[in-house]
């Protein structure tokens, strides 16, 4: 499908930027007139992906996170969250609900939330090179 509009931005992997990241994506998507619930699903998923990059990809040591958001002719939204961090050794394991290497305060729900709140979630990762999470959701009312 032909891309109608897109935006790209990057920012340091600091937890104080989590709010900026999800709000920036939401602001860009306002042109599609999304429902509050659609917007909340997307903000939550972006927040999970960005947190994963900060906590796991960069192990809280910093780096850059790259986000791209594309809207196609059919109002399909594609969001990519990319880091150049350590990568994921076992993607299947990482996507299991409740599995976490993030310590006692992390619920291990990041991917489960993304899978539940978005239409599709894809993860590409190379150890030592980084991880790209691709989130898709169709924002239209023809159900």
């Amino acid at each position: 499908m032909k891309i109608k509009n897109q935006v790209k931005f990057s920012f340091p992997a600091k937890s104080s930027n989590e709010s900026f990241a999800r709000s920036a994506v939401a602001a860009f998507l306002m042109q599609l007139d999304p429902t509050i619930s659609q917007l909340s699903d997307i903000k939550t998923s972006v927040s999970e992906a960005v947190t994963n990059s900060i906590v796991h990809g960069y192990k809280q040591e910093g780096g850059l996170i790259y986000i791209s958001v594309a809207i196609d002719e059919n109002s399909l939204v594609t969001i990519k969250v990319r880091d150049k961090g350590c990568g994921i050794k076992d993607i299947e394991k990482a996507m299991e609900p409740l599995f976490t290497t993030g310590g006692e305060e992390r619920a291990g729900l990041g991917f489960a939330v993304m899978q539940s709140f978005m239409d599709s979630v894809k993860v590409r990762s190379t150890e030592g090179k980084g991880t790209t999470v691709t989130l898709k959701k169709k924002l239209s009312y023809d159900l």
């Binding site: 909340s40 903000k43 305060e105």
Partner: peptide
Amino acid sequence: FMDSSGIG
């Protein structure tokens, strides 16, 4: 608003 950190 909350992500899974609210559960953690």
